[in-house]
């Protein structure tokens, strides 16, 4: 991957310097950055630095990549966590409703709606939500409630009181979270529906019914809790989807997170940032998989890893 990145035409010096730079000065800059060394040497240095946690220097942000990522990561994580929470709550609810109304018009209609959102590119949904609840609601229709279309907080954020600050943060968080939530919910709802239907057919649910428990206790006390087991592992496996989603959503809403920074880094040929960014994303995916395995073992007593 490193080699391929460096085979690309143009290098950071071209972009940092602009056409006014003399050839001599450009050569000097290349020498300073070690860009004139053979590729193998560059790779060795890079690998050694990478292993020690030194991701290099981002020339677009004028700061070490590590500092840049450290400042962006919390923003991505807060958006991701909000969306994950929202989509799981919504998805589980819808899945349960569908399972209970199995093979009725409600089930069918919800399936169609979910498939509709599932088929939707997140960047388009983000744009449409911006258009309706951000721009049109405020400027054209004059609705009393509208949501800011871009950024994390407004310019006068610092002058607000603490309560107003929280409200402000939530308002800015609403549309990005809503976008991600709607896109992710479909898969969870489908999974929950299947899981719930499977559990409802189990013997212990029949036993619970036979005992004379109220339908509510059978569903929520017995069936629901068991149907949740496989869903818990899904949360870890959803990390890649979530991260891909944040890239688009951050770009549309101007959310200062890692995804948007990576896209901008691609435009600016800021290789260290691209490489480190994808590395961090990969780590998060692996961590998600691990989390899924651990959760599964922790929740389900039948699963034991030796």
């Amino acid at each position: 991957m490193f080699v391929v990145v460096h085979l690309a035409p143009g290098d950071p010096v071209d972009i940092m310097a602009g056409p006014a730079l003399t050839a001599d000065a450009a050569a000097q800059m290349r020498a300073n950055f070690g860009l004139d060394r053979p590729l193998a040497v560059q790779y060795g240095r890079w690998l050694a630095a990478f292993a020690t946690g030194d991701f290099g220097y981002s020339h677009t942000h004028q700061a070490p990549v590590r500092t840049v990522l450290a400042s962006l990561l919390p923003n991505t994580l807060s958006l991701g966590a909000a969306a994950l929470l929202g989509s799981f709550v919504l998805g589980i609810l819808i899945g349960v409703v569908q399972a209970l109304k199995h093979r009725t018009a409600v089930d069918g209609a919800l399936s169609v709606v979910m498939l509709f959102f599932y088929s939707m590119p997140s960047f388009w949904l983000a744009l449409m939500l911006t258009l309706t609840f951000g721009l049109m609601a405020r400027n054209v229709w004059g609705w009393p409630i509208w949501f800011p279309a871009s950024g994390m907080y407004s310019v006068d954020y610092q002058s607000l009181g603490s309560a107003a600050r929280v409200v402000e943060r939530l308002r800015y968080l609403t549309l990005p979270t809503l976008t991600l939530t709607l896109v992710l919910t479909a898969g969870i709802a489908r999974f929950m529906r299947g899981s719930m239907l499977e559990v409802i057919g189990e013997d212990y649910v029949r036993t619970a019914r036979a005992k004379g428990l109220s339908e509510r206790r059978v569903i929520w006390g017995h069936a629901f809790r068991n149907a949740l087991l496989p869903i818990a592992t899904l949360s870890g496996l959803y990390v890649p989807l979530l991260l891909s989603g944040t890239v688009f959503v951050e770009s549309v809403f101007g959310w200062p997170g890692m995804g948007r920074a990576m896209v901008e880094a691609v435009h600016a040929r800021d290789y260290p940032l691209v490489m480190a960014g994808s590395f961090v994303f990969a780590v998060m995916v692996v961590a998600g998989n691990l989390l899924a395995d651990v959760l599964y073992a922790a929740i389900d007593p039948r699963v034991r890893y030796d």
Partner: peptide, 16 residues
């Protein structure tokens, strides 16, 4: 598969 697919694509189109 360890990379989210979009991230992988982004790092590839960074080059070409």
């Amino acid at each position: 598969l360890a990379f989210p697919r979009l991230v992988l694509l982004i790092s590839i189109v960074a080059i070409v």
